[in-house]
Structure formats: structure tokens, C-alpha cells
């Protein structure tokens, strides 16, 4: 889900930073209004940030291979509006300690992963009215990966990076029944193709993340409910 250093042109990088800073100001203000003193939330944000960081290193064995978790959906469910801050710091740490992603693309990467995390929180809360925790959490986190994929495609489009117009592939695939119809539908629109390729790449991740979050959130709800954002606005705290 990361874009590396040196891939995007200056304009897109600058736009990423501007959008990130605007969103950070909005979400910090919003959280102040919602939670009061947000300094109290520092341990929770830091723990979730570290978890987000470690989870990105953790490989879930999916025989015959294994894949990295992203957990942006879980971050959103746990932190709500504070999720963007958490993802920004998590990606900053990854850029500093592993050169994963990068400093210049930090703005773009944070928006691509952070905005869907906040949206996942809304989706989770909306679904919670009708479905149980597991289903809501699973769908919300899968949706956040889907949204990140879409945003990533928008970034590629804005950067003018497209992976060919597919016409060559359309000729090549004309013999194969299903593939040819998909390809010919997408041929000519590079945006459709980019989305299609990224979606195909991220589909396993979407499913695995959905399943994992569908297990994690009910587990946390059972064992330590005050960690879930709903419960930490002061009402259920004993102190």
C-alpha cells in the first residue's frame, strides 16, 4: 500500500502534504471537540500506532505464501477521528526506521491510508446499528482497504503513471472468453485498468484483513471494552 520515494512527481507530493496538513488540523480540532483534552489519549494513540507498525511487519501465513497486514481499518475503528494522526506517525516511523515508503511521499501515503481509516469508523458505526460487531468490523476494514486502493489509483492517475492503454493486451486476450470481455471493457481507459490491476493485487489483503478484524474487534470488546472508541469518551471510565 506504500508508494516509494522517488516515484511521484513534485506536484503530487506537494498536494499530498497540503491535504494531509489540512486533514490533520481538521481531525485534531474535531477530536478536541469530541474528547476534550486529547493529551489523555496519547497512550492509546501511541499503542495503536506501535501496533499498526508491528502489524505491518507481521506476516500472516496464507499457504502457500504469506502477506503483510495493514490494519488501517482496525486503527479507524479503535481511534475514530484520531486515526489519521496514528497512521501519519506510524508511516513516519516506518519511513525513518525501515525506509519503507519515504519522507517526501509521507503526505500522499498518509492520506491514502488515513482517510479510508476514518471512513471505516463511520461505516463501522453505521453497520453496528444493524449487524453484530464481528460483521461490522470485518466489512468496515475490508472497505477501508478497498478505498485505499481506489485512492492509490487516483494518485497514480494524477501522477500520470499508467500501465499502458491495454490495447495490446486486448488483442492478445481476444481468444480467452472471460478475460477478453473484461479487458475490452477496460481498454482505452487507463484509470479503469489501474484500478483493476490494483484491485486484483489487493483483493487477498482485503479478504484477510476483513476476517482478522472480524475476530480482533469482538475479542477486544469482550476483554477490554474501554479500548473501543465508543467507550472511552469518559462515560464508562471509572477514574
Amino acid at each position: 500500500m506504500h508508494i516509494s520515494e522517488g516515484v511521484l512527481p513534485a506536484g503530487v507530493l506537494a498536494a499530498g502534504w497540503v491535504i494531509l496538513i489540512i486533514l490533520l488540523i481538521i481531525t485534531i480540532g474535531w477530536s478536541r471537540k469530541k474528547f476534550g483534552n486529547i493529551s489523555e489519549k496519547i497512550p492509546l494513540i501511541a499503542v495503536v500506532t506501535a501496533a499498526f507498525f508491528v502489524a505491518c511487519l507481521f506476516r500472516v501465513p496464507v499457504p502457500p505464501t504469506s502477506l503483510h497486514l495493514v490494519l488501517s481499518g482496525l486503527v479507524g475503528i479503535l481511534l475514530g477521528p484520531l486515526a489519521l494522526i496514528c497512521i501519519f506517525i506510524g508511516l513516519l516511523l516506518q519511513a525513518l526506521l525501515f525506509q519503507n515508503g519515504g519522507i517526501t511521499v509521507l503526505g500522499v501515503n498518509s492520506v491514502v491510508m488515513g482517510l479510508p481509516a476514518i471512513i471505516a469508523w463511520f461505516v463501522y458505526k453505521a453497520l453496528l446499528k444493524k449487524k453484530n460487531t464481528a460483521v461490522s468490523a470485518g466489512l468496515a476494514s475490508a472497505f477501508s482497504i478497498f478505498l485505499s486502493t481506489l485512492l492509490l489509483a487516483v494518485v497514480f492517475l494524477a501522477a500520470g503513471i499508467d500501465f499502458g492503454s491495454l490495447n495490446a493486451l486486448a488483442d492478445y486476450a481476444s481468444g480467452i472468453p472471460v478475460l477478453s470481455s473484461i479487458v475490452s471493457a477496460l481498454a482505452g481507459s487507463s484509470f479503469g485498468l489501474t484500478v483493476f490491476l490494483l484491485f486484483l493485487m489487493n483483493l487477498p489483503l482485503m479478504i484477510i484483513e476483513g476476517i482478522i478484524c472480524a475476530f480482533i474487534v469482538p475479542f477486544i470488546e469482550k476483554v477490554k471494552p474501554e479500548m473501543l472508541e465508543e467507550k472511552i469518551d469518559g462515560k464508562n471510565r471509572t477514574d
Partner: peptide, 24 residues
């Protein structure tokens, strides 16, 4: 397997949250 891994990650979060809160 997914449930085992999810419980492991969940427990990790909870343990660390408690420790982080104490430290803070």
C-alpha cells in the same frame, strides 16, 4: 488459524494498552 492470529494480535494490543496507560 485466522481466529488464533486475531486473538494473538488482540491480546498484544490489550496488554500493551494497559502497560502504556500505566507508564503514561
Amino acid at each position: 488459524m485466522f481466529s488464533s492470529i486475531a486473538n494473538m494480535l488482540g491480546m498484544l494490543l490489550i496488554k500493551s494498552f494497559e502497560r502504556g496507560d500505566d507508564v503514561y
